[in-house]
């Protein structure tokens, strides 16, 4: 987390997605971010081969949320042996859709002058949380009431020491919006909404007890809810 009001959405450290030994010397590490309402795939390309690499291009397979490169992979100069270059690739969500297992799985093809290579990676569902995800209070109440009990998923977050206001503010930096807060029997109940890029809404209740560092998160609506909610733990930390 950051200091004061300068908190921003959590971005995971890069992990290796493509091993050099499986890609004729090309190693790719990456992560995902959402900045200014734009999703980015942040890539480090390393040339571990003996010869120069050129002519890079990238393509995604169809995926659950229609993620697609919004432009070409910009590797402006040839990549010399032992050289690493950082590339930030903006993504759109208007690509072809196909439900993947798991839902946030992304299959990627990268080519260079040597060959075409394939890898898959998992993106955090939070990159799909849009900035206008604060649901009208009236709509929230009506929607919550209409949802059958069996659509509710619940999980627990242990050892989190934020109070409800700090949690609310931290979650808002990840586009998880608090619509109402109530205190009942010494428990703070935060009612929250999330909107995904494909228009699906997730409604959540975050329950915190004063002096207890364990939170309970309950969420409702479609299957995306569960992975959306599991992100809350990362966002809070």
């Amino acid at each position: 987390g950051g200091v004061g009001t300068t908190t921003s959405a959590y971005v995971a450290p890069k992990t290796v997605w493509l091993l050099a030994m499986k890609a004729k010397g090309l190693e790719i590490a990456g992560t995902f971010s959402r900045r200014g309402g734009v999703i980015h795939m942040e890539l480090s390309l390393t040339n571990k081969a003996m010869s120069v690499m050129t002519d890079f291009a990238i393509q995604f397979n169809r995926n659950s949320f229609g993620l697609a490169p919004a432009g070409p992979l910009q590797v402006l100069t040839p990549l010399s042996p032992n050289q690493t270059t950082e590339v930030s690739l903006p993504l759109s969500t208007v690509g072809p859709v196909m439900k993947m297992e798991p839902l946030n799985n992304l299959q990627v093809a990268v080519k260079n002058n040597i060959d075409v290579f394939y890898f898959s990676c998992l993106y955090p569902i939070s990159i799909l949380f849009v900035e206008d995800g604060k649901m009208e209070r009236q709509v929230f109440l009506a929607t919550w009431k209409d949802i059958p009990n069996e659509n509710e998923a619940q999980f627990h977050i242990k050892d989190c020491h934020l109070n409800s206001d700090a949690a609310s503010s931290k979650l808002q930096s990840s586009n998880i919006f608090t619509i109402a807060k109530r205190t009942v029997d010494n428990q703070d109940m935060l009612y929250q909404s999330i909107k995904l890029t494909n228009g699906i809404w997730v409604l959540a209740e975050l329950r915190l007890q004063a002096g207890n560092s364990n939170y309970t998160v309950s969420g409702v609506l479609e299957r995306e809810s569960y992975i959306a909610l599991s992100y809350m733990e990362l966002a809070l930390r």
Partner: peptide
């Protein structure tokens, strides 16, 4: 904040979730 009945509705929701 305007008293549009929603404040009360959220209180009832929280109450019903805590003491179903």
């Amino acid at each position: 904040e305007l008293d549009d009945g929603l404040d009360e509705a959220f209180s009832r929701l929280a109450e019903s979730r805590t003491n179903p």
